[in-house]
Design a protein around this nucleic acid. Structure first.
Lengths: 239, 239
DNA sequence: GAGTGGTCTAGACCACATC
DNA sequence: ATGTGGTCTAGACCACTCA
């Protein structure tokens, strides 16, 4: 897979914004200027700029130009598919992952429905807690189809399943449907989380799809109420 | 503003998917075929298809084609800027809006920070509860800059502020930063919500921006725990 | 009126999937 | 080998903003 021409341009401009070369509320050079600067066509520049807009770095205004948005306000994990490992790194705090349960199972009825599989399918089940600054704040329940993930080890689960899938197995995750609700604590929550007297948890349910549009993973992240935070950057829906 | 050529193509294909002309997991006609069908260039077709992909209708797969995704699974308000009025319509349940507080104020320190304004700026403050099937479930706290909204009435607040802004004032909302956290109930929550013994609420904080990238509204939606639900469709972040 | 971003075109080459 | 979507180009016209 050869890299596209607009990708390094995108990264360059992101860097220029983050390092303050382009300041908040400033106007980027016009698309024609950028074409010349980068020695490419205008449409290619536009692909890079559209990515910047999608990811909340700029706002394009017809007739005026591309305004640099306040990157500090946007910087927190922008919606989506960010893994705990990445989150952890960006937070830079003392974090730890503890694996409580790990193995192959056959799905119960609920899971069959969630993953759209038959009862005889095999599924990896992983229960982990995430400790931040000495407190177990998040309980992750992962279910992965064995068809796509032939092997999984406890060691991998202690690191990052996500990285393993992408780096080792070359599985390309392409999109996810996310649902956020609040549920009463289960016994499992009380066992594996430092629940601090709360009687509810925030549950983030993730249905994860691969590049070929097949559903292959269901993940549930159960957060202690007081530590939960979700940030989303939403472009206006197209009409 | 003339409408673009790809917009009606996009709508046509959405309709074809929703009405089952293109079925789940089927492959759309290729981009070349569609160019011919619609009598346009391939790049224009690609703009329409990219919109479909962004909005979760299809998944494009290199070398194969565009797969139709399960629209029933995706249909709930896809992330973002959906207003209560729209939500209400899609739910089709008995709903009511009650306005408790309404008027012009000068911002306190927190609000100055949130809206990035000076103490002498004028701000519309609106406190409303949303009743669904006889229960007051959501408390909306809206703050709008008077600079952009010269007039506001209680009647408008009982209907939809959102619609008023777009239809009457022609204000184009372009993007929003959303933050979801859980907070302990305030006295206000207890007064204006049927709180049912819960001691926390889910708070959705919205920072709303106009087309010219100016922040003009801060809105807080406070939901009773058991009735909160948020759905998001996230494409994989670009790397 | 000059400059901006938004759209559209026709043609080209590539990497990938399928047969 | 053929067909697919992904990228890139050079040029064109439009609607918009601002001086």
């Amino acid at each position: 897979m050869k890299e596209s021409k607009y990708a390094p341009i995108y990264r360059q401009i992101v860097q220029d914004i983050q390092r303050g070369f382009y300041k908040t509320n400033a106007i980027l050079p016009s698309e024609n200027e950028l074409s010349q600067q980068f020695g490419t066509s205008r449409e290619t520049i536009r692909k890079a700029l559209n990515l910047l807009a999608q990811n909340g770095y700029i706002q394009k205004i017809k007739g005026k130009g591309s305004v640099v948005l306040d990157v500090k306000k946007m910087s927190f994990p922008v919606s989506g598919l960010v893994s705990f490992k990445e989150l952890q790194q960006s937070l830079g705090r003392d974090t730890k992952t503890i694996v409580y349960d790990f193995g192959l199972i056959h799905p119960d009825e609920l899971l069959q429905q969630q993953l759209q599989i038959k009862p005889d399918a095999e599924v990896w089940k992983v229960i982990r807690s995430r400790e931040i600054q000495g407190e177990r704040i998040i309980l992750d329940r992962d279910f992965l189809l064995k068809d796509y993930v032939p092997l999984l080890t406890k060691e991998i689960c202690e690191q990052s399943i996500y990285e393993y899938l992408e780096r080792e197995l070359k599985l390309q995750i392409s999109f996810a449907k996310k649902e956020i609700v609040v549920e009463p604590c289960t016994d499992e929550d009380r066992s594996y989380l430092d629940i601090e007297g709360f009687d509810h948890v925030v549950v983030v349910k993730n249905y994860v799809y691969l590049e070929d549009a097949s559903l292959f993973q269901y993940t549930e992240s159960r957060h202690r109420l007081d530590k939960f935070r979700f940030v989303d950057f939403a472009r206006r829906a197209h009409r």
